[in-house]
Write a protein that binds this DNA or RNA. Structure first.
Lengths: 334, 334
DNA sequence: TTTTAGCACTCTTGTTCTTTGACTGCTAAA
DNA sequence: TTTAGCAGTCAAAGAACAAGAGTGCTAAAA
């Protein structure tokens, strides 16, 4: 385990590196941080911190840089979690007070606010389909050959989809659909819209097969539809020095454009309130230069999706985590 | 006006530059393009083409590069418009044959296909609100305190929005809303949902003021809602040599992230089938490194939005325009 | 035993100078 | 009007060098 002075030095180095983005020298630490010892002593400690894997050195005669293990220790043990100013609190409050009609809107506002306060790129994704129960299903006739299906879930999410037909649909058929689907699905998980249900409905009403089939097809598609990755402030990242490297910048674009990796991460199981993924800890090569911090958007313990920040490993973890904690609390208590 | 040989040389230079992204020398043109003259002759012609403003020179002893004027002439006069292979045609056909339930989906598929075939970043935006007429308005009760308003326009676009209330809404109130709005709005442009309408409705039914007010507010918001910029293949651009420059890459990200400039351009009035914007021709500093090519997505002469390509000025105009023409034709004739 | 001053050593960064090679523009001959 | 030939220009790449920042180690001080 690290003794007290080593912890302080490690913290100083990481704080300094987060600020300057330059390898940190023993001299700077001795000067700026009051650790009551000389640069030589700090140098000696640095050697040991490097040996234990908390620090890296870009080359022999350069200053030190935190390793993934260093960041991890910093995040788990050293971080200040109230790194948030009164102005920031006020700003967040005012943003989150906006009256919204849909929870998805609220997620967007929170994501936007998070990005604005932290100056990093933020992302969000809605709740997973298999965690939501159906509250109500409504079919609405649009014109004579279009049907809109609206599903309201217990999380307050509204999913809607449109089905087009080659022949006219009668109001009576719409009523049958409404009764049938509601009686079968109310209270069931979204995933209950599946093949077995389709077969059941087939056996029930042979009448309008050519209506039921496209309806089922489209409903299933709408539910399993690839989650939408909501993105805010992608350009903010490009002001950071690590994005001077074309390699890094390209990886970043790719990560956000492909969506897959990000969605995976955002949908991953949650141990804590706030989850920190530090680049190189993942097996995924694409993530090695970045850190991602996420939290669940919850309201009255219902899962309303996940919100996160993506940025360089040299991220202001303390600020991001503080702001997230605050936003998370506000969202939940609203 | 340019004589025949000058045209041929200009064309050769631009073709070559589009391929190699390197300033083009007289030697290469004399060698690769059969113009029946020596590099010295071509050099003489190049001097004149430069004097007339069609070519630029990065520095005294380098090859030539097309100027904005050069590209413009190339696009207007020299381009081959059937630069599309059988495979590409087949691929586009198969993609566009996908059965869709919403036109917006079709726009997405077309945008996606355009990006895949040309290897550039493509963008799309839906039809402007002021060009669409209301076909039908439906209000649907979700739970007891949520109302979904669905507007079907004559272009087949469906806009839906949700309104939340602090008190229960009755089925009767929903009926009143449906009758009122449909009788007032059927056939009218989307923009008819405005203050005067609100006042008219107020005077008509004092009854449920606390229902009408939020409904109108939310409907207006939904209609004037900032257009959504649909984006496809943003990462493709980053493989191109011009994006090696961090400056250019950053401008590109900014352009797409801010959306505003792009939306302006996509919504601009249309003279031709296909519109080509060459970077430096615009007064907008942000566009100076890029070219944008757009076309209207039309079906039976109804405006269904705009689809475009954004890439470096050194773009394969011929390929992009050829592919666009084909996709445009297919979309219209479907 | 721990801390620190001092110094040699290492490695990056920036500068200058040189070489190489790709083009051009011009001149004079074809 | 075209072309061969050649001097002149400039960017790009590399070599050589100086400056500076930082380390690790040693030996003295606390």
């Amino acid at each position: 385990m690290l003794d007290d002075r080593k912890k302080k030095i490690l913290q100083a180095i990481i704080d300094e590196y987060i600020n300057t983005a330059e390898p940190v020298s023993s001299g700077v630490i001795a000067e700026k941080y009051n650790l009551d010892c000389s640069s030589a002593t700090i140098r000696n400690e640095m050697v040991e911190l490097e040996k234990s894997g908390y620090l890296d050195k870009p080359h022999t005669s350069s200053g030190r840089v935190p390793s993934a293990q260093g960041y991890r220790f910093y995040v788990n043990e050293l971080i200040k979690e109230d790194n948030i100013s009164l102005e920031e609190i006020k700003y967040i409050q005012s943003k989150l007070e906006t009256k919204v009609n849909e929870i998805e809107e609220l997620t967007k506002i929170a994501t936007n606010t998070l990005s604005e306060v932290t100056h990093y790129t933020s992302v969000a994704v809605g709740p997973k389909a298999n965690l939501q129960n159906i509250e109500e299903v409504k079919f609405v006739l649009l014109g004579s050959r279009m049907l809109m299906a609206v599903i309201l879930t217990d999380t307050g999410i509204v999913k809607e989809t449109i089905i087009k037909f080659d022949e006219d649909i009668t109001e009576e058929q719409v009523n049958i659909l409404n009764n049938l689907f509601n009686s079968k699905l109310k209270g069931k998980p979204l995933e209950a819209i599946d093949k077995p249900l389709e077969e059941y409905i087939f056996s029930e009403m042979h009448q309008s097969l050519n209506v039921i089939k496209p309806v089922m097809l489209q409903l299933e598609r709408a539910i399993r539809e690839e989650d939408h990755l909501y993105l805010e402030g992608a350009n903010k990242s490009f002001e950071l020095p690590e994005f001077k490297s074309l390699e890094v910048a390209k990886n970043f674009i790719n990560l956000l454009d492909t969506k897959e990796v990000m969605l995976d991460l955002l949908n991953t199981g949650f141990a804590q309130d706030i989850n920190v993924y530090i680049g190189d800890e993942s097996e995924n090569e694409k993530l090695k230069d970045f850190s991602i911090i996420t939290f669940k958007h919850r309201y009255q313990d219902k899962d309303l999706g996940t919100i996160g920040i993506i940025g360089p490993k040299r991220m202001d973890y303390s600020k991001v985590i503080s702001v997230m904690k605050y936003i998370s609390k506000k969202l939940n208590g609203k």
